Amino acid sequence: MTATAFALLGYIGWTLLLLLVMETLRSVLVLGGKRRSDSFRPDGSDGSPFAQRLSRAHANCLEGFPIFGGLMLLALLLQLAALTDPLAPWLLAARVAQSSVHLLSVSVMAINVRFAFFAVQMAIAAWWCVKLLQAGLAG
Score class of each variant (00 low, 15 high):
residue 1 M to T: 13
residue 5 A to E: 11
residue 6 F to D: 03
residue 6 F to S: 01
residue 8 L to V: 04
residue 9 L to C: 12
residue 11 Y to P: 02
residue 13 G to H: 10
residue 14 W to M: 09
residue 15 T to L: 13
residue 15 T to W: 13
residue 16 L to S: 14
residue 17 L to E: 02
residue 17 L to V: 09
residue 18 L to F: 09
residue 19 L to N: 12
residue 20 L to C: 13
residue 25 L to D: 01
residue 27 S to E: 15
residue 31 L to S: 09
residue 33 G to K: 01
residue 41 R to A: 14
residue 44 G to W: 03
residue 45 S to Q: 15
residue 47 G to R: 06
residue 52 Q to L: 03
residue 55 S to M: 08
residue 56 R to C: 01
residue 57 A to Q: 02
residue 59 A to L: 12
residue 66 P to M: 02
residue 67 I to H: 01
residue 68 F to Q: 05
residue 71 L to R: 03
residue 79 Q to S: 14
residue 80 L to A: 12
residue 82 A to T: 09
residue 84 T to D: 04
residue 85 D to K: 09
residue 86 P to C: 08
residue 88 A to W: 07
residue 89 P to E: 10
residue 92 L to V: 12
residue 93 A to I: 02
residue 102 H to C: 04
residue 102 H to P: 01
residue 104 L to E: 07
residue 107 S to Q: 03
residue 109 M to Y: 09
residue 112 N to E: 02
residue 112 N to R: 14
residue 113 V to L: 14
residue 114 R to F: 10
residue 114 R to K: 14
residue 115 F to G: 14
residue 117 F to M: 13
residue 118 F to I: 00
residue 118 F to S: 04
residue 119 A to L: 09
residue 121 Q to D: 08
residue 123 A to H: 03
residue 125 A to I: 03
residue 126 A to I: 10
residue 130 V to I: 15
residue 136 G to Y: 06
residue 136 G to C: 03
